[in-house]
Design a protein around this nucleic acid. Structure first.
Length: 125
DNA sequence: CGTGTGATTGTTGAT
DNA sequence: ATCAACAATCACACG
């Protein structure tokens, strides 16, 4: 349970885990959701092909590098290898992601319907 | 005890 | 067409 109301602002970032020379934050996250504003029924994005590849890669990576703590390294390793992967090899992950997208798309349709159905809070006041 | 942060790319909704 | 934010993962640090 996330006590989002009680969550500490967390101004400090203990990034002493990995000695990164300088990695510019590509994704400046503004902040966690301020308050209920947003799409409560908005279907979450399905994992991309990259993530599916990561699932498999993670296991392999741990086998090859059992001493590796985890994470960010894998992420980088994944991305690097991902770029070296042949399209045909990636296709198999794309295929999975594609199916998920299909479901996601359907969910999005219903989501839109629900929005129209009862939640039209967009009134000019 | 709990949760945010870190990086990877892809995907998709919104403008 | 372009932007921006979010999708999982997992150890660790901080209050």
């Amino acid at each position: 349970m996330k006590t989002r109301s009680q969550t500490t602002p967390k101004p400090l970032k203990t990034v002493a885990l990995a000695p990164r020379p300088d990695s510019p934050k590509r994704r400046p996250r503004p902040m966690p959701k301020p308050a209920g504003k947003g799409d409560p029924r908005a279907p979450k994005k399905p994992p991309t092909a990259f993530f599916y590849f990561m699932e498999d890669f993670r296991k392999t990576y741990k086998q090859e590098n059992p001493s590796v703590k985890s994470m960010r390294e894998i992420g980088k390793a994944c991305g690097e290898k991902w770029n070296t992967m042949s399209f045909e090899e990636k296709v198999k992950y794309y295929d999975i992601a594609t199916e998920k997208r299909a479901e996601f798309e359907k969910a999005m349709i219903e989501y839109n319907k629900k929005k129209e159905s009862g939640e039209m809070s967009e009134e000019s006041d």
